[in-house]
């Protein structure tokens, strides 16, 4: 890939009559990265990846995938790209194996190569035992796994996954997230869209937050958190309230604020790993027992709230 960039979007815009779905999106995904597009429904994530997948022609702007322009060389883009659509785009009356064989043929695989890749992908998605069963008889999570498998058959350099964990059980979700990490570990570049901040946080090397057709911020998780300057929040419950102890805690380095209310204390701290041992130590010295601790790390929810003035979940 030229200059180590797998995907480069430059001022992508998409207009549907009077509606501007995407309004000048630019970003770069380096080869071997997991890059997440995070945002509420209607933010423009799916339209952006539809353009990158050559399903939609941009109204303006261009993008390159593996060095090929989506405008000038769509067939080359498609050949190096695997796309996992948001919907279960499979033939429900065909078996898992028949589905994978068909999609493999669409990517030009034939004969022994096709059979070998189908067997490998069935193993990756954990459905070797159920390969002969019709996809229509599978649970939602299993269907999602076949949906992903169909995009892996031709060993693409780049895989685009559009909200692949929507509406499935926690076990299947875990399986899919582990698959994504494993594929990335093997060198595959992943462009991942989601409105679950936990997924973006867990998976991504870089995260772009989209809202109303625009990327409002892009960076690593740490960079985004630093951007808003949020501190860790600690909620503690004490067995008995002690004014001297509260005063002592206020003076501990790294504690920025403390409020107390009938034995329940809320602290804003720089680094909970440094502060918490000191809290337990001083409480023990004065004989006060800490009965509960809740640590709330700064998260992308806070970033979204900070930048848009609305909660991410409220915007869904």
């Amino acid at each position: 890939m030229p200059d180590g960039v797998a995907i480069r979007a430059q001022d992508l815009q998409k207009q549907f009559r009077a509606v501007s779905a995407v309004r000048g999106v630019s970003f770069e995904v380096r080869a071997g990265e997991i890059f997440s597009l995070l945002g509420p429904n209607g933010a423009g994530k799916s339209t952006t990846i539809a353009m990158l997948s050559c399903l939609l022609q941009p109204t303006q702007g261009d993008a390159s995938v593996c060095g090929h322009s989506i405008r000038q060389s769509p067939q080359r883009v498609k050949a190096c790209l695997g796309v996992v659509p948001q919907d279960i785009a499979l033939y429900l009356d065909l078996s898992a194996r028949e589905n994978l064989e068909f999609w493999g043929k669409m990517y030009g695989l034939r004969g022994a190569t096709l059979r070998q890749r189908v067997a490998e992908v069935l193993a990756i998605i954990g459905l070797t035992e159920r390969q002969k069963d019709k996809v229509g008889t599978f649970s939602g999570g299993m269907q999602r796994r076949v949906n992903i498998g169909a995009a892996l058959l031709h060993r693409p350099d780049v895989i685009i996954m559009d909200e692949p964990t929507v509406g499935i059980d926690p076990q299947s979700r875990r399986h899919i997230l582990d698959n994504v990490k494993e594929l990335n570990r093997q060198g595959m570049t992943v462009l991942y869209t989601t409105h679950y901040m936990e997924e973006a946080q867990e998976l991504s090397h870089q995260i772009a937050i989209m809202d109303q057709g625009k990327i409002i911020v892009c960076g690593t998780h740490a960079e985004l958190i630093r951007l808003v300057g949020e501190r860790t929040r600690l909620d503690l419950t004490l067995h008995s309230e002690d004014d001297a102890l509260v005063a002592c805690w206020r003076s501990i380095a790294g504690v920025h604020s403390l409020s107390a209310d009938h034995g329940r204390l809320t602290l804003l701290v720089d680094d909970s790993n440094l502060v918490l041992p000191r809290l337990f130590e001083t409480a023990a010295q004065v004989g006060v027992r800490i009965t509960s601790v809740t640590i709330e790390e700064p998260n992308l929810e806070a970033v979204f709230l900070h930048l848009t003035g609305k909660a991410l979940r409220d915007a869904l």
């Binding site: 997948s53 050559c54 399903l55 067939q75 498609k78 050949a79 790209l81 796309v83 659509p85 919907d87 279960i88 785009a89 499979l90 033939y91 429900l92 999609w103 669409m106 990517y107 030009g108 169909a150």
Partner: peptide
């Protein structure tokens, strides 16, 4: 309806 037709267009066909 099940988007397979659209998915086909993401392949080199």
């Amino acid at each position: 309806k099940n988007r397979c037709l659209q998915r086909l267009l993401t392949t080199p066909i």
